[in-house]
Amino acid sequence: MKTHKFDRRAVSVTVAVLVVLTGCSTSTAPGAKTVTRNEAITRPVRVSGDDRTLTVVAESGGCDSLPRLHVSETPKSVVLTVRITTRTGPGVVCPADARIGPARATLHTVLGTRTVTDGTTGRRLSIRKK
């Protein structure tokens, strides 16, 4: 069996070129801008043991920032909105990847018996206590 030796410098240069070609541009590209959108919450909301930290699972893509969970509280309800900021415009190249991960927020007072709704859809959300 024949073994191959690789030139480390050539491999490093090849990897660097591939990274550039697959979309590691910055938002400083001419004409680039950012757009913020709200995403629907599609999975149950997890509530921490202290009944104050809420966690949702959110999806985002290559040019998206990490999702943020915005909370609006009243004495009877909590409204959650997932917000994602995206780089767009000419000259912006995005990697073709998808991320799924947590977005968290801490309430000012314990959740208790308040209802939790999705600020994007208006739908009541199911709650899972940890």
Rank of each mutant, 00 (worst) to 15 (best):
A98T: 14
L66T: 14
K33V: 15
G89V: 06
R43C: 04
G112K: 02
R104E: 13
V82H: 04
A105D: 01
S48G: 06
P44W: 01
E73T: 02
T81E: 10
I100C: 05
V92N: 01
V47Q: 03
V13H: 03
V45W: 04
A29C: 04
T88W: 09
T81V: 10
G31P: 02
K130G: 05
S77C: 01
G119D: 03
T3V: 14
T36R: 00
I127R: 05
D64F: 05
V35Y: 02
S60Q: 02
A29P: 02
D64S: 14
G61N: 02
R87E: 09
L21Y: 00
I100N: 09
V35A: 05
V45C: 05
V20C: 08
C94T: 04
T85R: 12
D51C: 12
V20R: 03
T74V: 10
G61F: 09
R52A: 13
D50T: 09
A16G: 14
T121D: 08
R68T: 14
R43M: 11
E59P: 00
H108N: 12
S12N: 14
L69Y: 07
R83V: 03
R87C: 05
I100E: 12
R124W: 00
S65C: 00
T113P: 02
V20H: 05
R104A: 13
S77W: 00
R8F: 09
